[in-house]
């Protein structure tokens, strides 16, 4: 690999790290300006002023904001996300299994959704403006237009209640065999797939159609290549950058946007954990989850940027 490309990639990664610090400040400031008092919400309305003052002292709430920020940041950098105010449990150790669950569900959805979306995009281009193209677009757009809770309940009604092939509640626990775990997430993963499919499919179609105008596509046609081979071999490699971008955006959505689906299927993931603790005004938990979501988002976008750089032969092989 050449030096300029390594420099470009290093720049992207450095930029991502800077961005992550900026986001950590935003999250911290955001939770600080929320109304309400943590000590009050822990002890309830009946607490004595003395008890409130003691608790504030104990939690370090009287320190200036920047001291608390660096205290928190130092903890995060050493893997200590603090303790949940409501339960007194260590946040890191209770988030970890939930993060694994969320990534598992998102991963299952992604493994199906990404290849399917790209394949459908390729087929739509092959039969562009014909009935097959319209059918694919109509199906994908319809599935995206329904709210995810509607799709979720529809799946539950048919597959869990009526035909009883999959469980309605996606219970997973430690030490569960892989296949059982897979069976448990079939319905939520399907719902998520239907939600993200259309966006990726439509963008793949548009990106490839754009490339199909190029003179080298004509060259391929005049070599006698079949239409699908032209799209796969000559058009797709030149459409990778925009496709990767939209795929990564959707993967990020699969991780950070699953709240509703997790609630419907009672799936023990990050989303549910976040919703629970927002309701209880448990600030350290909200900060920790927010930071993890931001990290996922930024990481995936960096990967998209790097993939776009690597997909460009002019950058990979300079003159």
């Amino acid at each position: 690999m050449s030096v300029p490309i390594l420099k470009l990639i290093a720049q992207r990664i450095a930029l991502g790290i800077v961005l992550l610090f900026a986001v950590s400040i935003l999250i911290f400031v955001g939770t600080q300006i929320l109304p309400g008092d943590v000590a009050q919400s822990i002890l309830g309305q009946a607490a004595t002023p003395q008890a409130l003052a003691n608790l504030r002292e104990q939690l370090g709430l009287n320190d200036p904001a920047y001291v608390r920020y660096f205290h928190w940041l130092g903890g995060v950098l050493t893997g200590n996300l603090g303790t949940a105010l409501t339960s007194g449990q260590d946040i890191a150790s209770s988030i970890w299994p939930r993060l694994k669950n969320t990534l598992f569900l998102a991963g299952c959805a992604a493994v199906v959704a990404v290849p399917l979306a790209i394949l459908l995009g390729l087929i739509a281009v092959r039969y562009r403006n014909g009935p097959v193209d319209r059918l694919i677009s109509a199906f994908a757009l319809a599935s995206t237009s329904f709210p995810e809770f509607f799709i979720g309940y529809l799946l539950v009604y048919f597959f869990a209640v009526k035909w009883q092939v999959f469980p309605a509640i996606s219970t997973v626990f430690d030490g569960m065999p892989f296949l059982q775990r897979l069976e448990a997430v079939v319905l939520p993963a399907t719902a998520l797939t239907l939600v993200v499919l259309a966006h990726m499919m439509r963008m793949t179609r548009a990106a490839i159609l754009n490339v199909m105008q190029s003179a080298y596509i004509e060259t391929a046609e005049l070599k006698g290549l079949a239409p699908l081979a032209i799209i796969r071999k000559h058009a797709f490699p030149n459409a990778i950058a925009p496709v990767v971008n939209v795929v990564m955006l959707n993967l990020a959505y699969l991780v950070v946007g699953v709240v509703v689906i997790e609630v419907i299927f009672v799936y023990p993931g990050m989303g549910q954990y976040l919703v629970d603790h927002v309701a209880k005004r448990d600030v350290p938990v909200v900060q920790a989850v927010g930071l993890i979501f931001a990290a996922v988002y930024i990481t995936l976008n960096i990967i998209a940027d790097i993939a776009a750089i690597l997909a460009n032969p002019r950058l990979r092989h300079p003159k």
């Binding site: 006698g224 000559h234 490699p237 030149n238």
Partner: peptide, 19 residues
């Protein structure tokens, strides 16, 4: 196409696939 008849385009720079 590509077997009995082949084609040479005006702008080879555009007619080759950059990838």
């Amino acid at each position: 196409r590509g077997r009995e008849v082949c084609y040479v385009a005006q702008s080879a720079a555009a007619a080759f696939n950059p990838a």
